[in-house]
Design a protein around this nucleic acid. Structure first.
Lengths: 205, 205
DNA sequence: CAATGTGAACAGCTTCACAGCC
DNA sequence: GGCTGTGAAGCTGTTCACATTG
């Protein structure tokens, strides 16, 4: 499929899951996998997987399946994860501390390259091998090649930090507070609110 | 709207956001809000809000808007958040530590009532006012009225813990690891994977 | 008159069935 | 024969227009 088709946002959301699955399969030494077998692992339907992958080209071999390491590599390229991506972590509180040493980022090639906080008590401390810097000093992060930020601050400070990040040239923000961030259109924000997710759970009981 | 209509899952996902907004408006002393004003705050479309709320009954007053505290209370009832809900936290590592003291749960009436871990180094330690218990001892949590659990353990242990939780009578699990949890149909799982969310961000740059 | 509640149109996503290829 | 790639059908969720009500 080479035509310019609009790729559903939901497809993009599933791509990292595919990448994780293909990466793990590769580590296990598996060379090919069918959409059916993969669907079994990820609890999706086989045609869903085929359609998703086909938006980006012809990944598979008919009668055989998808080549594990090639497909992993192509998904990395699509998601721009084929080069290690530096991210700044804002907030060195408990949540920031957890994020700083979260092992899951490594699988996607993310590298937390700088940590910032506004509290004098935390500035200068070491966290996951990095020195916590004053949040006022994040102006130069673009020069370090940092285009992503993870925002782990209380919701009162989230907008202030987001504005600082935008001014510092950040292009993507993972927001872990419940607040809506007002940013220019060129900046992409993904928000995760733990309490909100928990809030939906009881409804279904 | 009193008829039995199927309520979209996406509507349920937005309900906690409405609840948060109405709660905050109530704290500010506002008595009524229109769907338009609320839409401005939440960055949604007014008809979306009206339709969502109308699935659960006639909340508003034509010409006036929605009564803030009444609507908040009715959403709490819908989401079963009108009574304080106890939750167990599994995992007393860095992520668990962050969760244990996360202030955002209070707004929805969540109360972390017990913490479990499998590491002898952590069992017996105090965390957010609670003593970390041995994960093997979580069998009795149903008698304490705990029906929810937050799973903050490495992905290798996630399935084992989930099975323990199901056997202990837990009905809802917030899973913070990237693994798929196999549980009986009566148990509802919501999974959040930070790395996956970050993985989608770069695509849009 | 202002703002809700809602059927109907619309858009987006998923599933299906099967043609095409290895 | 087995499995991918894909148009078409089906389904779910969103937006619209407007009738309705305080």
């Amino acid at each position: 499929m080479l035509k310019f088709r609009k790729i559903p946002a939901e497809t993009i959301r599933r791509m990292p899951r595919y990448l994780r699955a293909f990466s793990l399969l590769g580590q296990e030494g598996q060379t090919y996998i069918s959409s059916q077998a993969l669907a079994g692992q990820l609890h999706l339907n086989p045609p869903q997987i085929r359609k998703d992958l086909s938006y980006f080209g012809d990944f598979g071999t008919r009668g055989v399946g998808y080549p594990v390491s090639d497909t992993a590599q192509r998904i990395r390229e699509i998601l721009k994860l084929d080069v290690a991506q530096k991210a700044a972590l804002i907030g060195a509180g408990r949540l920031g501390t957890a994020i700083a040493s979260y092992p899951g980022f490594a699988m996607f090639g993310f590298d937390i390259a700088a940590i910032f906080d506004n509290s004098p008590a935390k500035i200068g401390k070491k966290l996951a091998g990095l020195t916590v810097q004053n949040i006022q000093d994040l102006t130069g992060i673009a020069e370090q090649g940092i285009r992503l930020a993870i925002l782990a601050v209380p919701s009162e400070s989230a907008q202030t930090c987001a504005t600082l990040l935008v001014d510092a040239g950040v292009r993507g923000i993972l927001n872990l507070s419940p607040s809506w961030l007002k940013v220019p259109k060129r900046v992409k924000v993904v928000s995760i609110d733990l309490a909100m997710e928990l809030g939906t759970l009881l409804y279904y009981l």
